[in-house]
Amino acid sequence: MVAHPRAAGGLRRVRPLDITQGRPLNRPRPLRVEDNEDGRPTAVYLSGHRLAVEAVLETWRIDDEWWRERAVSRVYFSLLLEDGRTVTMYRDLVTGRWWRQDY
């Protein structure tokens, strides 16, 4: 057999990427929210401005990693704000805090 000329030096070893040293993308950011007695957001503060919620477009809940010490339990809202923007946010049902996060 004749060695392929390009393989004369052997295959170069490539170090695998260490994802444990990376930082997650799309991390949730804290958000100040006003809500009503039903727990539905009525206004959010973006860049210090209060924006009333025009409509709740969609809402969904995720419950995951319940076997861990810190389970994930969230209610997501997709909101239409009074200036026409849409934002996606969630309420952490474990801590009760509000977070902004694209889904």
Binding site: V14, L17, I19, G22, P24, L25, N26, P28, I62, D102
Partner: peptide, 26 residues
């Protein structure tokens, strides 16, 4: 850095991808 998929199937958005340091010389 380089964007890599970690758990693209995850229901938790921040678990899906990560930004990792990348050394092109290795």
């Amino acid at each position: 850095g380089k964007v890599v998929e970690v758990e693209p199937w995850s229901r938790i958005p921040e678990r899906r991808g990560a930004f990792v340091e990348f050394d092109p010389s290795t």
